[in-house]
């Protein structure tokens, strides 16, 4: 038994089974090719960001990060995310409640429409809002007459960001709440709880990790969005540039060290996002494994948090 447990740590269940095991030469060729591809296409671009950022040492690196334009861009990036993510969180919870707890006609269509923003090119997202609110857009004249600026200003950038991050949280919560069913909430209602009490005390504890998961993914996209925001921003330095736009401006001015210094902040954000995501998935796996050992495995536990869900495919 102990020997078996020891091998379990080093070999996968497929490697312990003669029927699903490849000879070492084949195994290491496959692993080698995979890792070479992974290093070339994933690790090298990541290392290059930090390598280029620190090429001239830490002094110029920090100088580039605390430059006034970079700080203004950081502030705008945080502002956009702080507004866009909570709005999509409220929507995500409402949509998931609607889809998971009720039956109605056109539900499948609604789910497809919620996914729609994933399949629209970011550039087209920007174009949409220019067509609505730009100088020649539908509401352009009215906005100009009332001195309201949406395009080339914060509201336009917010709209573009909300559009591209629209499905993230809903997409995590819908399958999660569907898997958990309706019985617990129905019991709470029968026992006399009102809607908010049911949500706070019954639903939310069950979905909190899904909420965290969706929020960090939406946040990463909100802070990193480039194409859509670039179309509606007008790129006024220090005013309508977010961090990704600041990266582009610096790069196009051949100020590579500063561009990569700012880019390294965004790369760090990506790494932190992946770390939190991986941690939540391991939590879910651990919860699932314990349930397998013990009593009957509740379906809801398996769905406590999503496993290896791509950020923008579903």
């Amino acid at each position: 038994m102990t020997a078996l447990a020891a091998t379990a740590l080093s070999a996968t269940r497929f490697e312990r089974n003669t029927a699903t095991r490849e000879n070492p030469l084949i195994k290491w060729s496959i692993v080698g090719i995979s890792l070479a591809f992974f290093i070339l296409f994933v690790l090298m671009p990541l290392f290059a960001v930090f390598g280029e950022a620190l090429r001239r040492g830490f002094g110029p690196y920090f100088a580039a990060i605390i430059a006034p334009d970079a700080l203004a861009a950081l502030k705008l990036t945080l502002t956009t995310a702080v507004i866009a993510v909570p709005l999509n969180l409220v929507f995500g919870v409402a949509a998931a409640w609607l889809i998971a707890k009720f039956d109605f006609r056109g539900k499948q269509l609604l789910v497809t429409l919620i996914d729609l923003p994933f399949s629209v090119s970011p550039v087209i997202v920007g174009l949409m809002f220019v067509l609505l609110f730009g100088a020649n857009g539908w509401f352009g004249h009215w906005l100009a007459a009332h001195n309201v600026k949406i395009i080339f200003a914060l509201p336009g950038m917010l709209l573009a960001t909300i559009f591209v991050t629209f499905p993230f949280i809903a997409r995590e919560l819908i399958p999660l709440m569907q898997a958990q069913g309706r019985e617990e909430e129905e019991a709470a209602v029968v026992l006399g709880a009102n809607g908010w009490q049911v949500f706070w005390h019954v639903t939310l504890p069950n979905i909190k990790w899904g909420v965290v998961y969706g929020v960090i993914l939406a946040n990463a996209r909100a802070m990193g969005e480039f194409g859509a925001v670039s179309v509606v921003s007008g790129k006024l330095r220090g005013q309508t540039t977010t961090l990704p736009l600041q990266v582009e401006i610096l790069y196009n001015e051949y100020n590579f060290a500063a561009a990569f210094a700012v880019a390294s902040l965004l790369a760090l954000l990506a790494l932190v996002t992946l770390a939190v995501k991986t941690w939540i998935e391991h939590r879910a796996d651990a919860a699932y494994d314990t349930s397998e050992l013990g009593m009957e495995a509740p379906a809801a536990l398996e769905a406590t948090a999503p496993r290896t869900a791509p950020i923008s495919t579903k």
Binding site: P45, F226, P244, L269
Partner: peptide, 21 residues
């Protein structure tokens, strides 16, 4: 964990990094 990096890394960052590489 890092397989998802292309999703998480802002596209502009990936863009300048690949161009420089």
């Amino acid at each position: 964990a890092l397989v998802d990096l292309p999703f998480a890394l802002p596209t502009a960052v990936a863009g300048i990094s690949l161009a420089t590489l």
